[in-house]
Design a binder for these strands. Structure first.
Length: 802
DNA sequence: GAACACTGCTTACCT
DNA sequence: ACAGGTAAGCAGTGTTCT
C-alpha cells in the first residue's frame, strides 16, 4: 500500500537494541498513520582525529562504523572521520570529550538528522508493511507501518484533527472538576465535557486519555494550556497514581522542553495564547478579551474565583462555561490560521509540522543549510552557546525633521539583506582574506567565479521559488488555490528574511560576526548612497530606516508623482537589488523622532499609515490613543493652517479638560504591559506592572510569566506610583488619578502639536522650520532641530494647556 | 525644597 | 536562544534654582 501523508511530528525510541524513527502522519485520505523507519544510525564527524582516538573508537562497542571523509572546515579541506554509533542518546557523551571545533554535526536532533539525510519534507510518499498486532497496540494511529520506501512528495493540504481542551479545577485543593473539549475533525465540530458525579478525579483523567485515543488528534490546543492546563493535568495524574498520561501517539506523556514548551510524540501542542500574542498583539490577552475582539463573543458568566461554590451550586453552568472556553480557543486558533501558516513554513523549510510550528528559527535555516552542506562536503559545525560578544552595527536610520510634508514618495529595497547576501556572495564558505569582494568593514569574500557560497545559492533558489509561487497565485483559478500559493510565497519570504538574523546571532553554528557585520555594512552603504544621490539632485530626503527612503516628490500631482516614484525606483534597482516604489503619502507628518510617523497614503491605495506612535502601542491607554488619533485626523485632513488650528487646538484642550474632570469611561484608562518572570528583574519591587501581577496572583487569578497585566493609576504623586489591577468583569471601585491621565494625554498631544507654531510659512510647507516665539498658542512652540543632536527642551506641563 | 538634568531599567515598537 | 536601532515612561540620584 502506498500513502501520501503529511508528517505531523517525528520521534525515535529504542526497541530490541535498535533505534526506530517514528514518523507520525496524517494521510491525504484523513487516516492517521505511524511510519516506522528501521536501520538509521546516529553519527557525527571528527576533524583531523589523532590515530590514538581512532583506535580507541575502533575498540568501542557502541561505535558501529568509522569512515574517512574530506570535509571543508573553516576555509580549507580537512581529513575527517565519520563516526557512526549505536544510540542517539550517547552522542553527547562523545562530543563532550572532544576539543572545541574538532567535532562536527553532533548536535542535530536525531529525527531531523534522519529527515535531512532522507531528504524528506512535510509531505511524503510512504510504502511499507503493516506491523504485527503487538507492535500496533503501542500506537494510537489507525495504521502502523514498517517503512519499505519513503520519498518527498509534492506539497498538498490535509485537514487535521484539532483538539482543544480546558480544565476547571478546585482552587482550594487543586482537584479537577471538569475537562471540556472541542474537536475540529473535517467540517465537524464535536463538543463535550468529562466530569464525574462522584467527583472521581482519576476517572475523569482516564476518560480524558480515552477521548484523546479515540479521536487521535494531530494538534492539541487550548488557551494557556502551556502555563496552566497541561501542568495541572500532569500534576493531577501523578497525584492519582497514574504512571503515564498516555496522550502521545506512542502512548507517551507530555514532556517539557525549555520552560513552557510542551511536547508530546505524534501531536503538535499549540498554546492559543502564544499564537494570539504573536499574531494579534492585543492590548489585553485574556481569553474573553481576545474572543470578543476576534469573534465578537464572550465567555459564559461563571466566577472562577469561587469555582468551588459554583461547582456545588451551578454545575451545569460550569460545564457549559468550560466547553465554551475550549471552543473559543479552537475558533481563535482557526481565525488566526496558525496551523495553515505552520504547514506553509514546514512545506518550504522541509520539516515536520511540529518542528516548523514549535521549533526555533535556527531549525528552519538548519534544515536547508545542513542538507546543502552535506551535498557539498562542507563540515557542519555545532552551535556555540554562552559567550556574549559585542553586537554588530545594524541598519541606518536617517533623522527626521519635525513637520508636515507633502507628496512624500516611499521606496524600499525588496528583501534587502537576502539580496546583499546573493549579490556580494556573502557566506561562511566564501569568507576569505584574499577575496575580491570587500565590504565597508574590510571583510572580504571570494567572487562567485572562484566559489559560489552555499547561503547565496540557497537564497537564490528561494527567491526563484517565491517568484514561482507568486506566479501560480496570480494564475490561480479559485480563491482557495490563490490563498494556497499565497501562503507558500509568504512562507518563503519569512524564511529568506530569517537568514540574516541567525547569521548575526552569536550562537548559530554557521555564524561569524564578520558575516552579519558585512551584510549590514553593505546595506548602510547602499541606502546612504541612495540618500546622497537624491539630495545631490535637489530632492529632499525626509526619512529613511534600514531599507526604505522617504523623499519629496517635485511634482504635486498624482500622475507625475507616480511617474517620478517609478523612475527613482527603477534607477536604483541594480545588481540584484530591487528598489520598489511602495506608496505616496499626502500629507506626511512626524514630530521629529525616528520610527514615529503618520501619513495618508493616496497611492497605490488609500489608507492611513501610522508607525510607532501611541496609537500603535499596546501599553498606551485607549483614551490617549483616541485623543492622538483625533489630532492626526485633523493634521491629515485640514485644508490649511487656519482650519487645523480651529479644529485641533480647542479640541485638544477640551480632551485634556475632560480627562481632568474625570469625564472618561474607566475602561479607556486601562494600562497594560507584559510581566516577565519575577526573578529576571534587577529590582522588581518598584515596578507598577510587576506589583500588579503579584496582586492579581494573590487574589487568586491566573498569572503566567510573559502575560500582560492591566491596571489603573490611582495616585501618581506617590513614588512609586500607586496602581490598582483592572480585572474584566470586576467593578473598579477606586478613583483614577485623573490629573496623571490628563498629564499623559497632554504630553502625547503636545509632542505632536508643538510642531505647529505661529509662523505661517513653516506650516504646511514641509520645509525646515525656524524657531518660533511662543504666542497665543500656549506652549505649542516649535524648536529648530539640528541633525543628530536635538536640544533639550522644556517639558510641556499640564498647565500649558489650561 | 521644588524643579530639573541625567542615568538605568524596562517595554514595545520599526525594519 | 534570529538581529540592532529607537522612543518613551518611571525610579533614583545628584545638581541647580528659589
Amino acid at each position: 500500500m502506498k500513502y501520501e501523508a503529511v508528517v505531523i511530528d517525528a520521534s525515535y525510541h529504542e526497541e530490541n537494541d535498535e533505534t526506530i524513527i517514528n514518523l507520525f502522519c496524517r494521510t491525504k485520505e484523513g487516516i492517521s498513520l505511524t511510519a516506522r523507519v528501521h536501520g538509521f544510525d546516529p553519527y557525527f564527524y571528527l576533524v583531523s582525529p589523532p590515530d590514538k582516538v581512532i583506535d580507541e573508537l575502533k575498540n568501542d562497542k557502541d561505535v558501529k562504523k568509522i569512515e574517512k571523509y574530506t570535509l571543508f572546515v573553516r576555509g580549507i579541506e580537512r581529513e575527517c572521520a565519520k563516526v557512526t554509533i549505536r544510540y542517539p542518546y550517547k552522542v553527547p557523551e562523545y562530543r563532550k570529550n572532544v576539543p572545541e571545533g574538532a567535532c562536527l554535526a553532533a548536535d542535530i536532533p536525531f529525527h531531523l538528522r534522519y529527515f535531512f539525510d532522507a531528504d524528506l519534507s512535510l509531505c511524503v510518499e510512504i510504502e511499507g508493511n503493516d506491523v504485527d498486532a503487538e507492535t500496533k497496540s503501542k500506537y494510537t494511529t489507525d495504521i502502523v507501518l514498517d517503512v519499505e520506501k519513503i520519498s518527498p512528495a509534492t506539497p498538498f493540504k490535509v485537514p487535521l484533527t484539532v483538539f482543544s481542551f480546558d480544565i476547571e479545577n478546585s482552587i482550594r485543593e487543586n482537584r479537577i472538576y471538569v475537562i471540556s473539549y472541542a474537536i475540529r475533525k473535517g467540517n465537524e465540530l464535536i463538543k463535550d465535557a468529562i466530569w464525574s458525579d462522584t467527583d472521581d478525579e482519576r476517572e475523569i483523567i482516564e476518560r480524558f486519555v480515552e477521548v484523546i485515543k479515540k479521536y487521535d488528534p494531530d494538534v492539541i490546543t487550548g488557551y494557556n494550556i502551556g502555563g496552566y492546563d497541561i501542568p495541572v493535568l500532569t500534576e493531577r495524574a501523578k497525584s492519582n497514581g497514574i504512571k503515564t498520561l498516555n496522550i502521545g501517539r506512542d502512548m507517551g506523556t507530555f514532556s517539557v522542553s525549555q520552560e513552557r514548551f510542551w511536547r508530546v510524540h505524534g501531536r503538535v501542542v499549540i498554546d492559543v495564547w502564544m499564537a494570539v500574542k504573536l499574531r494579534l498583539r492585543p492590548k489585553q490577552e485574556t481569553l474573553n478579551f481576545v474572543a470578543k475582539m476576534l469573534l465578537g463573543e464572550e465567555k459564559d458568566d461563571v466566577n472562577r474565583l469561587k469555582i468551588d461554590e459554583e461547582w456545588k451550586n451551578r454545575r451545569e453552568d460550569v460545564i457549559r462555561y468550560c466547553i465554551k472556553d475550549a471552543e473559543l480557543a479552537l475558533r481563535i486558533l482557526e481565525e488566526l490560521a496558525e496551523i495553515n501558516r505552520g504547514m506553509d513554513i514546514a512545506a518550504v523549510a522541509h520539516l515536520p509540522l511540529d518542528d516548523a510550528i514549535n521549533g526555533r528559527t535556527s531549525t528552519l535555516i538548519d534544515s536547508l543549510l545542513i542538507r546543502e552542506a552535506d551535498r557539498r562536503n562542507i563540515g557542519v559545525p555545532m552551535n556555540k552557546y554562552g559567550g556574549s560578544e559585542t553586537p554588530i552595527e545594524g541598519g541606518y536610520v536617517h533623522s527626521i525633521q519635525p513637520g508636515l510634508y507633502h507628496w512624500v514618495i516611499v521606496c524600499d529595497f525588496k528583501s534587502m539583506y537576502p539580496s546583499i547576501i546573493i549579490s556580494k556572495n556573502i557566506c561562511f564558505t566564501t569568507l576569505s582574506e584574499d577575496g575580491e569582494i570587500e565590504s565597508p568593514t574590510g571583510v572580504r569574500f571570494l567572487s562567485k567565479e572562484r566559489r559560489v557560497g552555499i547561503v547565496p545559492s540557497i537564497l537564490e533558489r528561494l527567491m526563484a521559488q517565491r517568484d514561482e509561487f507568486k506566479k501560480k497565485a496570480k494564475r490561480a483559478e479559485s480563491a482557495e488555490e490563490k490563498a494556497y500559493y499565497d501562503g507558500l510565497q509568504n512562507a518563503v519570504k519569512i524564511l529568506m528574511n530569517s537568514f540574516y538574523g541567525v547569521f548575526a546571532s552569536s550562537f548559530y553554528r554557521f555564524t561569524d560576526k564578520k558575516i552579519g557585520g558585512a551584510i549590514t555594512a553593505f546595506a548602510r552603504e547602499n541606502i546612504k548612497n541612495v540618500i546622497a544621490t537624491l539630495e545631490n539632485e535637489g530632492i529632499k530626503v525626509i526619512y529613511s530606516d534600514t531599507d526604505s527612503v522617504f523623499f519629496q516628490s517635485p511634482y504635486k500631482n498624482l500622475e507625475e508623482a507616480i511617474k517620478f516614484g517609478e523612475e527613482v525606483a527603477g534607477r536604483f534597482s541594480k545588481e540584484g537589488m530591487s528598489l520598489e516604489f511602495e506608496r505616496i503619502l499626502e500629507p506626511f507628518f512626524s514630530h521629529g523622532k525616528k520610527k514615529r510617523y503618520v501619513g495618508k497614503a493616496i497611492w497605490p491605495k488609500e489608507e492611513i499609515v501610522i508607525r510607532g506612535y501611541e496609537t500603535r502601542r499596546t501599553d498606551a491607554f485607549d483614551w490617549q490613543s483616541e485623543a492622538l488619533m483625533e489630532v492626526f485626523d485633523a493634521i491629515l485632513n485640514s485644508k490649511d493652517e487656519k482650519e487645523l488650528k480651529a479644529k485641533v487646538i480647542s479640541r485638544a484642550k477640551k480632551l485634556i479638560e475632560m480627562t481632568l474632570n474625570g469625564e472618561v469611561p474607566i475602561e479607556k484608562l486601562v494600562i497594560s504591559r507584559s510581566v516577565r518572570d519575577f526573578e529576571s528583574y534587577k529590582d522588581a519591587s518598584r515596578l507598577a506592572h510587576v506589583e500588579v501581577a503579584k496582586q492579581i496572583m494573590a487574589e487568586g487569578y491566573e498569572f503566567i510569566p510573559g502575560m500582560k497585566v492591566s491596571w489603573i493609576v490611582v495616585d501618581a504623586r506617590k513614588t512609586p506610583q500607586k496602581v490598582e489591577p483592572y480585572i474584566e468583569g470586576k467593578e473598579f471601585r477606586s478613583k483614577p488619578d485623573y490629573e496623571y491621565y490628563a498629564r499623559r494625554v497632554a504630553m502625547t498631544l503636545s509632542r505632536v502639536l508643538e510642531v505647529f507654531g505661529y509662523d505661517e510659512d513653516s506650516l504646511f510647507t514641509g520645509s525646515r522650520q525656524t524657531s518660533l516665539a511662543s504666542g497665543s498658542l500656549d506652549s505649542f512652540e516649535v524648536e529648530e532641530k539640528r541633525d543628530e543632536k536635538p536640544q533639550q527642551k522644556k517639558k510641556p506641563t499640564l498647565e500649558d494647556f489650561m
